[in-house]
Design a protein around this nucleic acid. Structure first.
Lengths: 200, 200
DNA sequence: CCTACCGATCGGTAGG
DNA sequence: CCTACCGATCGGTAGG
């Protein structure tokens, strides 16, 4: 594995865990097993490294989006379940992803707004547009605010996976689910589903 | 206003905005109009100041909880609306509150777990217990996982208000609501309500 | 990719 | 509540 890639991986983990500002080049160098200035041979500056980490994450999100579009061919409920599974799967496959995005949204809102405009806005428009059509056709609830709904669901997923990760033990014992993770996923999906569709 | 209080107020605002670790004593001193070492006359250390900020916030949450208990005297839907209004009101009355809590949950999960156990767990148990009774009595949905539901709703509220604050402009134009704030609040409340109660 | 080093800034202390 | 100052650590540079 290339040194550049090792640096990127270590930086991703540490920046997600402690935040980009609190992550030091020294700590990344220690993890990779090189000296601090060597990082700046691969990346122009610490900020350039942070941007690389962020764009790497958003690029993977860009890979997932096409799969979400494909799901458009199914019926309403099937499409919903596919999109939700994809959304939750993306963030549970690496818990650091949610934390990193939440941190960056709070630390650099202007920069993140620009990124979200490029990577998330198009997808948001498609999904919200579909919901609006379904709503006008009568298959989803009339009171739904499509844009606010989609953003709330994304935000709910992000927020829960970023913080409730370490908050799982607060939950009482549970027999039905294997991990706190699947228990959250089940409840989030249920809430999103029920609040979108009319009662069958 | 006492100097101590001025320091606490400035620290709260800055720690919520940039995070406790990224907030410097110098910046707080500048805002208050004193010299940096003078802060350490009022607070033993930077960490003691951070703890004071956090406990101040949680104490205010402790003031709100009794009002939530009082709401228990109403019927199901009335009680729900009262609790949701209180929850959202608490965090929208000062947007920094949500950001501060989310940051601390990510930065110091162990410490926050202890605080949540003291301040939020009792309230969680009461609300989840009431939902479980309502569910067994047939007035709320059978599929609801009371504990996961309550935590998800709190987390959804926190996450949305902490990050979507700066994300409001991503939403398209809207005629019904005055501010993006009320639009989020309306959609969050709707999702929480619909996913809890059976269809009337 | 390394050693050696820089100015800036951090939280905190001494002493008044 | 101040001035003066400390050791540690930060991101980054020079030069090889």
């Amino acid at each position: 594995m290339s040194a550049r890639h090792q640096i990127l991986e270590a930086a991703t983990r540490q920046m997600a865990a402690r935040g980009a500002d609190a992550t030091t080049l020294q700590a990344i160098a220690d993890e990779v097993g090189i000296r601090k200035p060597s990082i700046l041979y691969h990346f122009e500056s610490k900020d350039a490294l942070r941007v690389a980490v962020l764009e790497d994450l958003l690029a993977r999100w860009g890979e997932v989006m096409p799969r979400l579009f494909l799901a458009t061919s199914r019926d309403g409920v099937g499409r919903f379940e596919a999109v939700m599974a994809e959304l939750i799967g993306f963030f549970t496959s690496d818990p650091n992803r949610a934390r990193l995005l939440v941190r960056e949204m709070m630390d650099r809102p202007d920069e993140m707004r620009a990124y979200l405009g490029r990577f998330v806005q198009p997808w948001l428009d498609v999904v919200a547009g579909q919901i609006a059509r379904d709503r006008d056709a009568g298959s989803t609830r009339a009171e739904v605010d499509p844009e606010a709904y989609v953003l709330t669901v994304v935000c709910m997923t992000l927020g829960c996976l970023a913080t409730l990760e370490d908050l799982g033990p607060v939950l009482g014992p549970d027999d039905t689910h294997d991990t706190p993770h699947t228990r959250w996923a089940a409840e989030i999906t249920r809430m999103a589903r029920v609040s979108l569709f009319k009662e069958s």
